[in-house]
Nucleic acid binder design. Structure first.
Lengths: 221, 221
DNA sequence: GAAATGCCGTTGCTTAAACAACGAAAGGAA
DNA sequence: TTCCTTTCGTTGTTTAAGCAACGGCATTTC
């Protein structure tokens, strides 16, 4: 297995005993994939969300010309395909592949939404969790869009830092990315970004060392 | 009023009579705003989704330095704040303002998810609709991110066109944007984009006239 | 300790996108 | 019709970002 279901975002707040019963009641099915195997192909409809139990899955996209790019990877406990499963008739724009030997738990969204909605308290919790998963995804995407709307690297950095500072409640914070990852997140070139960072430091806008940054008051005025 | 609720994404598939009863049962509340008035301030928690009944609302974002940008505007029938309302404890990154005199219907998400889940068939439909609204938002955001990951204007255009062609099931399609809007969507300068478009046409990659585009086979190889 | 690896910051060069400005065409209103 | 506004496409210039390459530093591995 490798993951404790009730610590995942989807099953949070649901007790062990209820969980087992619920999985049965929902007709959850588990499946194993070999490394490199396709879990969900592009252009398909799906009525189920997937939860990675062990291993790792990769979400990628390919355009008409065959060029494909990795959008994200799904760690154990995380959910994928929820966006498509929740919109009836929508086909996938992306492809999900096993990055290692991977096991996945599939849950039919229709059953989550309708079955046994009479008594089960935890079922209501599951629905709420699913909604939270979807909303969190939206929020995450919105953030990324906000931070990449500026055309300049400095603008993007400041937008991102501004958000970090707000979240931290302080002008000092640390970021969960190394330089390359931050550059990828902001959609810019790493070396150029490094350059901009030092320029900003010289100008007194920010101070940083490795992943710890502080916005300077002078920059706020 | 100005809008027929049962034709909106959130209330789709729910009959008139049930709708009235349901709104009462959910404790829906309606409120009018004058042009320019703030409907939802930044940094707040909200437990309710809003549905614009008449008028128009604007969603905007401001950074630490006070610069603010318009993210989208909400037409009658459309839903806003669902992302924040569906994540307990999350505070808004954005601000919602009335662009004109506007009336809004607020629905508590907690009540949508819990109240009277015993009998009401249409209540289940409402929950499913809410989930669809959230998922649609995600999909919409994902698309935009996909189409803006390329660093070149040409790459962004081709990514977008690729998507249009897939959706249309044909190499010929028309786009719902004028040039300025398309440029804004792709995050590039309009004139530079026009330039690139004509270059692509000269090279035989695409053909276009106004908003009608066709990808040329030659470009597919 | 030596070698290898990964991450960070810097430099110089190249290129592509932004920007400003303009004229032509299309559409609407008087 | 004429006038006015909006939208498009084009040009030339400026600027900023991409890109490639390198050296320093820290960490890990043998």
């Amino acid at each position: 297995m490798g993951i404790d279901l009730k610590s995942t975002q989807l099953f949070r707040g649901i007790g062990d005993s209820d969980l087992k019963e619920m999985l049965h009641c929902l007709g959850a099915r588990e499946r194993a994939y070999r490394k490199g195997e396709t879990i969900l192909a592009e252009g398909q409809e799906t009525d189920a969300v997937g939860v990675v139990l062990s291993g790792r899955a990769i979400i990628e996209h390919s355009d008409l010309w065959g060029a494909n790019s990795v959008l994200s990877n799904v760690a154990p406990g995380a959910v994928f395909a929820e966006t498509y499963a929740c919109i009836p008739g929508e086909t996938t724009l992306i492809q999900v592949t096993a990055a290692e030997d991977t096991t996945v738990l599939f849950l039919n969204v229709g059953k989550i939404l309708t079955t046994c909605s009479n008594a089960c308290v935890f079922h209501a919790r599951l629905i709420r969790n699913l909604l939270t998963v979807c909303a969190s995804k939206s929020l995450q995407l919105s953030r990324r869009i906000m931070h990449t709307t500026s055309k300049s690297i400095r603008g993007r950095l400041l937008s991102y830092f501004s958000d970090c500072a707000k979240k931290e409640g302080s002008y000092s914070f640390s970021v969960p990315f190394n330089r390359q990852q931050l550059a990828d997140y902001l959609g810019v070139d790493r070396s150029t970004m490094c350059n901009e960072l030092s320029k900003m430091q010289r100008e007194g806008l920010i101070r940083y060392e490795r992943n710890s940054f502080t916005l300077r008051e002078s920059g706020m005025l």
